[in-house]
Nucleic acid binder design. Structure first.
Lengths: 209, 209
DNA sequence: TTGTTATCTTAGCATCGTCAAGATAGCGCG
DNA sequence: CGCGCTATCTTGACGATGCTAAGATAACAA
């Protein structure tokens, strides 16, 4: 019997179509890229009619938002893991950056959807809000742990913004083959990320700051 | 003989439809945003049938590439102007960044098309090529003029890449209203850009580097 | 003038997002 | 158990999109 399944989700005819649609969308996204992510393709992948999604999402954008939301959660988890594994706050900053860019490189289509939907809403997801304990706050906290003055709030916010923008910029650029030879010269993609971050002042600089 | 009109452009029935289509696309883009930029809308704006563009562009992507190309030229000009007006090489670096972000903020839809088409080609336009005298090279030259060691080519390329990524990252983020209060606290949008760049090590740092 | 060829239009195809109306199935209530 | 209610899903349709094929048209070359 299906009634015993976990989660308080709707489970009428299909079971939990909302969940199934998000998963189907993620599958299509990974397999065929963002341009192939049509509502009808998602419905097809989930094995339902083209109009079925409209009983769970207002429109296509709302489905994408749900997919993006999962993406932000994944990114948040990746950053948390990187922070936890760092040996020092100074190292943590650099590792957060590397983890961020690696996430974007490993999930390029999802990363794109995340920012595209954010742009459409002219807003940012909770994970990047100044309040709370999202990814943005993880970066800020790490900067404070690394020695930034927690009392100079403007300076802290600016530094966090600078770090986030740097990571996002590199994440978007890293996909272009223009940088292939630089990655090679650095001895690998991750090493390339580290080297670029050093030039951004995000990696620990040998002499005192 | 091409008749007397200027430009060696095609001018059969319409005159110069290729040119007119690019202009129409730019107009649609500025007026209605990237999501409204359909081939049919552009044809409508130019006053021709929906199939007419296919005699001048292989497909929609090629039209967008043409629009993007003009965008990169505009961006290049904006950077050249900023560099020319800077009072010192160190200032020039910061001013290049500010000019870059301002361009993106003043032409958000165009900026989007520029990078979207570049992503589709998995390549970057000439303006960002390592060779030549495009925008990328302007940044690199300015870094050298500001004191970077021109012999350490890897370091130079990494520094240029870091600068470009920082600018792009800030350009993309600057559109979110999340940062409205930061802009206010800095006393304006441009001042906000400058402040972020300082945290990225792109603005001139008081003590010698 | 005549023929050629580039240019543009008309008509059509498959797909997309979305909606309205009908069918279906699980649930509560008697 | 039976009845109805309502959420869920399907069918069918509309307008719009990217793109193609076939025909009309106008500039050029001879």
């Amino acid at each position: 019997m299906r009634e015993s399944q976990a989660a308080d989700a709707r489970r009428y005819h299909h079971g939990d179509l909302r969940r199934a649609l998000i998963d189907a969308a993620s599958r299509v996204l990974e397999a065929e890229g963002p341009s192939a992510l049509s509502l009808r393709a998602v419905a097809r992948e989930a094995g339902v009619s083209p109009a079925a999604p409209y009983h769970h999402f207002k429109d296509k954008g709302e489905l994408l938002e749900a997919v993006a939301h999962e993406g932000w959660d994944l990114l948040d988890a990746a950053l948390a893991k990187a922070k936890a594994e760092a040996s020092s706050p100074a190292q943590a900053i650099s590792e957060l950056g590397v983890a961020y860019v690696c996430f974007a490189r490993n999930n390029p289509a999802l990363y794109r959807v995340m920012y595209d939907t954010a742009r459409d809403r002219e807003d940012l997801p909770d994970q990047m809000k100044i309040e709370g304990d999202g990814a943005y706050c993880k970066v800020r906290d790490t900067l404070i742990e690394a020695g930034a003055d927690p009392k100079d709030t403007l300076d802290i916010e600016l530094a966090t913004t600078a770090a986030w923008c740097s990571g996002h910029g590199l994440a978007e650029m890293a996909g272009f083959k223009q940088f292939a030879h630089l990655k090679e010269a650095c001895g690998g993609e991750v090493e390339f990320f580290r080297a670029v971050f050093q030039h951004m002042g995000l990696a620990p600089r040998p002499p005192g700051d």
